[in-house]
Design a protein around this nucleic acid. Sequence first.
DNA 1: GTGGTCTAGACCACC
DNA 2: GTGGTCTAGACCACG
Lengths: 141, 141, 141, 141
Amino acid sequence: MLLPIQISPSSPEPMYHQIEVQLRGLILGGRLAEGAPLPSIRELALDLSCSVITIRRVYQDLENEGLIRTRQGTGTFVAQVRMEDRERNRLETVARVFREAVETALRYDCGRTDMHRLLDEAIDRLELEASAQGKGEDTRE
Amino acid sequence: MLLPIQISPSSPEPMYHQIEVQLRGLILGGRLAEGAPLPSIRELALDLSCSVITIRRVYQDLENEGLIRTRQGTGTFVAQVRMEDRERNRLETVARVFREAVETALRYDCGRTDMHRLLDEAIDRLELEASAQGKGEDTRE
Amino acid sequence: MLLPIQISPSSPEPMYHQIEVQLRGLILGGRLAEGAPLPSIRELALDLSCSVITIRRVYQDLENEGLIRTRQGTGTFVAQVRMEDRERNRLETVARVFREAVETALRYDCGRTDMHRLLDEAIDRLELEASAQGKGEDTRE
Amino acid sequence: MLLPIQISPSSPEPMYHQIEVQLRGLILGGRLAEGAPLPSIRELALDLSCSVITIRRVYQDLENEGLIRTRQGTGTFVAQVRMEDRERNRLETVARVFREAVETALRYDCGRTDMHRLLDEAIDRLELEASAQGKGEDTRE
DNA sequence: GTGGTCTAGACCACC
DNA sequence: GTGGTCTAGACCACG
């Protein structure tokens, strides 16, 4: 029941936010299918080395957004997501992260071809790591 | 003496950190030359609509890193940066932001060609905005 | 959780610096053991009658030096200090303060025997004060 | 017309205060005799690498204390000092610096014999430096 | 004008 | 409860 979530406790970005962003991505991106069970609060807290209170907040926020549903005594599950929401969020989020990357690259005086090269390198490196883990986390292309 | 810095006060990332990241990029990317004066604390605070204390902290942190030098009663200036440090930081930082973008894109099930398309769109959009501002802040390519 | 720290708010030496010097001494001198909890920011601020911001700065500076470690929501603790660093700092600091005292004494035309007499008087007076406080903070000799 | 004054611009103690303390010591300790000329404001500013405004403030403060006297177009001179003032200041100041040194040493867990050894070492080192400079700045003992 | 220190108090993240 | 960020404004040191 391990989720592919990485957080950095020392980051200036609050932990609860790091977790929410990644979990939201897994759900809206389709990696966690509708109805799939999420790890229990204390399991995820242990996995991410943080307090259960922080995870409770994350689950609460996502439940308020309608992305997950908690059933007393049973667990937490991925809720129905409207296709429309999914597509909108996907486009917005991915466009935004690329925009941020390009802003940084421009600040460091990188040109377009540099950026494409850097992008390929990043993909290669992450695919390698994923296949090394043997989790089948390839890019599907 | 206006710096090309954009901050979002409502972001979960603290303002001081947003400013530090961008200023660090401007210095290490060479857009602010060695010895160049930075805006005064009060001026930058006014420009970014935040408290002088926040800017004070930014300048203090960057001085602790050795990137800038402040002289009481005189102002704040870009310090000497060893070419080696500059290049290392540049590579690390730009590689890291692309890595983060790719991680997000993978979470949303984007493939390699999708990413290259998204990258081009992001560059086009930012170049357009830059040229609209007429500040000559093009990508030099 | 009271620390033996004395500050003088009217001194030309900034308060944050007075506190840092004394706290550094307590840690590097071994009076505060590794892992020991420091008073909370608010507690120490109250104790020293200064703003929490001032204490915050002190803790921040000492954390940047690697002498203490803060954990959000938990508290602030003495970090691991390498014995080597501790001994080096101890020697440097104590030698420096004696050097400063001697410089002043020379400026006032004091001779060597005068200085030794003054030193004994100062030790006697401080030991007396310490024992009067009954805190067991003797000189261990 | 060089005065034996050392200042550290990066110290948290204000420059004007560092200079005043040392100059006061030279006058009240008798190293600068009554009627002796002080360096001109701009000469001392050049010597200490600081602004003439800072030196002007120092001279102004000491003149307000009655330790020096400025004669238009002629220069600045050491004023008459009452023997009583001289002795009182001397005792207070020297006792104070030793007290501070002992406080630090105690914080670092130094014992009485350690302190006497450190004192002798500091005197030796400073005498050596003084004689190396050939300025006759011995301890007169 | 510049930067440097400090206050009193607010709100947030985390345990 | 803990630490972390931010504000609005004051006063000082320095050029």
